[in-house]
């Protein structure tokens, strides 16, 4: 019954959503596991933000049983990610 780690979240999202970009930050401050996620995935093409968040929530169903607070600060398509970060590609 270990708690969810940043690596658990990363590997689950990588396996299920094949992200072009993924940043997971553990933001828990004593309340239990809490994460902030930035993700860019081709799975998000043609989907509204609500549907994108649902995809992430669904992918993390198991982890969410233990995660206290989940923040999805960015859920972009790979193209949107490149548009926002032109210098890094």
């Amino acid at each position: 019954m270990g708690s969810v780690t940043k690596e658990d979240v990363e590997s689950t999202l990588t396996a299920k959503l094949q992200p072009a970009h993924l940043t997971v930050v553990d933001t828990s401050g004593g309340c239990g596991a809490s994460f902030d996620i930035e993700i860019a995935s081709a799975s998000f093409e043609g989907k509204r933000l609500l549907e994108r968040h649902r995809l992430v929530n669904t992918a993390l169903t198991e982890e969410l049983k233990q995660i206290h607070a989940l923040s999805i600060s960015k859920a972009l398509t790979p193209q949107q990610w490149q548009d926002q970060h032109p210098s890094t590609e």
Binding site: D36, K65, H68, S71, I72
Partner: peptide, 17 residues
């Protein structure tokens, strides 16, 4: 910014007062 998951914790513990 996020919603809070309130799975197993007691209400008083699962949210910042």
């Amino acid at each position: 910014m996020a919603g809070l998951v309130d799975s197993l914790a007691m209400p008083a513990l699962s949210c910042r007062v």
